[in-house]
Amino acid sequence: MIEADLPARPRSELSLRFGRFRQNRLAMASVVVLTFIVVACFLGPFLFPFTGQDADFDAINLGVDFTSIHLFGTDDFGRDLLVRTLEGGRVSLTIGFLGALVAGIIGVMYGAVAGFVGGRWDRVMIRVIEILYAFPYVILVILLAMLFGGGNVALFLAIVFTLWLTPAVIVRAQAQSLARREFIEAARAGGMTRRQIIVTHIVPNTLSTVIVYGSLLVPEVILSESFLSFLGIGVREPQASWGNLIQAGRATMSTDIRLLLLPATMLATVLFCLNFIADGLRDAFDPNDR
């Protein structure tokens, strides 16, 4: 029996890599800050006796005053700025994470099938992606938003529709190189069907790449939600999102920068955190970087 030189405890590659990620201070700090913001956005508004849509006409355009109930003041309808920003964060973060998740899942499945099955199926599937890529992004989103009749769902679908393409291309390339590896041949010799091979071998082996790319996809989705809401084709008043809050803040920028500063700072902080996390994940997962 061979028992020599085995490490004390078996560890999967994934757990080794998350171990490396945990040693990245900036990324771990970003995780903490991001968690704090997410919790604040989802639970914070319950601490106040009013919602972000309640207009208090006795308290219009209040300034920053940490002793009053309106900590960061109110807007020109008397709505509390902090609560609106937190509620806007709820929308932006939900669309961001959910959009990235859905776009990621569609992209991974599409790419894994195209790359592994290959042949004429692959040729047709990749042509479809290339055609969709050729549409200018903003025009496509505007058309889709109009097609779906506007609102949050339309915005969400439009974002997913445009953002699943890149993960699909990335995963397809991975699946193509995996399909030629010996362990896939061994799986075929072991009698597995194509579907079983895609689910048990191809998709899990693209996971490192997908985690890294997915972490970059989240800020991308949040940014495009904010961008579209800023242009007025996304989340609509009176519902708040970081995009339309920034848009509202921009209008009063020269007289009262407060309305711009709070949502913009939140958005920027979240984007920084997500990018630092993505960076940390890439350092931990990228095999070329060692």
Binding site: P10, F183, A187, L207
Partner: peptide
């Protein structure tokens, strides 16, 4: 080694 799926025990 290439014949063993790196993600599986």
């Amino acid at each position: 080694l290439a014949a063993l799926d790196p993600r599986m025990t």
